[in-house]
């Protein structure tokens, strides 16, 4: 458990930014992962007074506040309408309902854990991360960044552009994944990400006028398998992860084209 001296429930992002300049101060997400650390924190910065716990739909995007919980996203009708079961598939194995009622999207995005299902799912959609101070970066770029004292405010996902599907493999149902992958298609391009390698998901793209052409798509997957870096940890060896990557990509493809078929 971390230790904290002070607590500040901020009333504005400016206040949060100011406090967060100090390295020993930390922004509080849901607390589920943070509590497993042993940090000595000076001031805990709580954004829960800023109304960032809402999912809003505009004409061209979905905006998810950083304090929206994983479970909120899973059960949101707006999310379901726009992305079907994509996020449900991605989040459903994360520990349990109670955990997902606590863990926040902002905390997950900021943490960018190597095993993250959140990063691997968001990264294949047209996702932008809005940081306090006005900067907006793509999920892809944010995933590559070093940890800094930025504050995740909102997650913007473009509507209507991409259909996506998600697969993960876990040694047990509620464990963190041995490997996860997502695949999205916008009518022209395929976007594939393989995560929990045990490193974060990275996007590979392929020009793909005909998504039903599985031969071409599988070549693309084999290329991903050959070029992606995999690692070994307590859950699995890099050889196994490499083996699994192709299995999961093919499965997620099947799921995606089935969905496409349904849409037609």
């Amino acid at each position: 458990m971390f230790k904290a001296q002070n607590y500040a429930k901020v009333t504005s992002l400016t206040e949060a930014l100011e406090l967060n300049k100090k390295r020993t101060n930390k922004v509080l997400g849901g607390g589920c992962w943070m509590k497993m650390g042993k940090k000595n924190i000076n001031t805990l910065i709580d954004l829960s007074g800023l109304g960032l716990d809402k999912i809003t739909e505009t004409d061209d995007e979905i905006i998810i506040g950083s304090l929206v919980t994983l479970r909120d996203i899973e059960t949101s009708p707006v999310i379901e309408k726009n992305f079907g079961n994509f996020f449900k598939d991605a989040f459903t194995h994360i520990v349990g309902v109670q955990f997902r009622n606590c863990a926040t999207i902002g905390g997950s995005v900021f943490s960018r854990f190597g095993f993250s299902d959140i990063v691997t799912s968001l990264i294949v959609l047209d996702t932008k991360i809005e940081l306090a101070g006005g900067e907006t970066v793509s999920m892809e770029e944010y995933s590559e960044r070093d940890y800094d004292n930025d504050i995740v405010v909102n997650i913007h996902i473009k509507k209507g552009g991409r259909k996506a599907a998600y697969e993960s493999f876990r040694n047990t149902q509620t464990d963190i994944p041995v490997l996860n992958c997502s695949l999205a298609y916008d009518g022209k391009k395929l976007y594939a990400a393989v995560g929990a390698r045990p490193m974060r998901g990275k996007v590979s793209t392929m020009d793909c006028p005909d998504v039903e052409n599985s031969e071409e798509v599988f070549k693309f997957f084999e290329k991903i398998q050959a070029e992606t870096e995999f690692g070994t940890n307590t859950r699995a060896s890099k050889e196994y992860r490499k083996h699994l990557s192709l299995v999961l990509l093919k499965r997620v493809y099947k799921k995606l084209v089935c969905k496409e078929g349904d849409a037609k």
């Binding site: 497993m36 040694n171 047990t172 149902q173 509620t174 464990d175 963190i176 307590t234």
Partner: peptide
């Protein structure tokens, strides 16, 4: 329990 996985009911 994060690393040593005992069976959960969905297993």
């Amino acid at each position: 329990f994060l690393q040593y996985k005992i069976p959960a009911r969905t297993d």
